[in-house]
Design a protein around this nucleic acid. Structure first.
Length: 270
DNA sequence: GCTCAGGCAGGCT
DNA sequence: AGCCTGCCTGAG
């Protein structure tokens, strides 16, 4: 039995190709196929939203939460309109959602992302899953889970050599060991403040300000996080050298995503 | 050969 | 607390 659900105002390209996630594949028919935890989803863009196709209702609940269906983005965009640049960026990218991803996968993914480019990040993560994850479906050429911390913690740097992740391998292992042995309890971060969560994540080798902010925003939905990469640094220097606008409020992370997309679109076009 | 890619650790002042 | 510098790897 297949169930279909529709979410409004979700733009798949804006959301799934924005660099907050790395495991969605675009199909020839334009739909996207993804996996999170042990949930597999095919999702298609329709005129005024996105259409989810799932095989049971538990999956539907999972994915609606993953796509952050509860947050009122229209209200956030309205709030952002007090600033000219941010308002423009937000309206142009109004289909962006800040995903609620699996913490461990998000942590490892952004550790891998450092000093790296998106195609390579994607390749390393898919090799990680195909080598050490579990093949839970034969659909779409095979779907692999993201390996859990215990599995990775048992591996050696040599085992991870096929990933070609370079110097990041020891960071991946440090994070996995700390999560597997309980030094880091990822679930506890849901209840932490932004500052506490950040300090806690930074006790992992290979996790600095940027990686911690990405994990806090893209897994825990802590919208106070404002991941600052080279692109954002440039736009802040150009438009907000006197400080971020007041209207960002508690949603600086959402603002960051709008600005990132806006800036990237308008500079790559030149 | 070189630079750059959504940074970070380690060492220095 | 703020500045360097090196770093695996692969594409341009």
């Amino acid at each position: 039995m297949e169930y279909h659900y529709k979410t409004r105002c979700l733009d798949l390209k804006q959301t799934l190709e924005s660099g907050q996630c790395f495991r969605w594949r675009k199909q020839d028919d334009g739909s996207y196929v993804g996996i999170a935890g042990s949930h597999v989803l095919k999702i298609s863009q329709v005129r005024d939203g996105a259409l989810l196709t799932v095989s049971n209702k538990e999956d539907a609940d999972y994915w609606l939460k993953y796509f952050d269906s509860e947050t009122d983005y229209e209200a956030v965009i309205k709030q952002f309109s007090a600033d000219k640049t941010l308002g423009e960026a937000a309206r142009e990218n109004s289909g962006i959602r800040i995903l609620r991803q699996e913490p461990f996968e998000t942590l490892i993914s952004f550790i891998i992302s450092q000093n790296n480019n998106i195609p390579r990040i994607t390749g390393i993560i898919s090799r990680l899953c195909e080598n050490f994850g579990e093949r839970i479906s034969d659909e779409y050429g095979g779907m692999w889970t993201f390996p859990d911390a215990g599995r990775l913690a048992a591996l050696s740097p040599e085992d991870l050599a096929p990933l070609r992740a370079g110097f990041r391998v020891r960071y991946i292992l440090d994070a996995s060991v700390k999560v597997a042995d309980g030094t880091i309890d990822l679930d506890s971060i849901y209840d932490m403040s932004y500052d506490d969560g950040k300090a806690y994540l930074k006790t992992i080798t290979g996790v600095g300000d940027k990686v911690a902010d990405c994990v806090l925003l893209f897994a825990y939905h802590k919208t106070s996080a404002f991941p600052t990469d080279v692109w954002i640094k440039r736009i802040v220097a150009e438009y907000y050298s006197d400080g971020l606008p007041e209207c960002m409020g508690e949603y600086k992370g959402i603002a960051q995503q709008y600005l990132f997309e806006y800036f990237r679109k308008h500079s790559s076009a030149t």
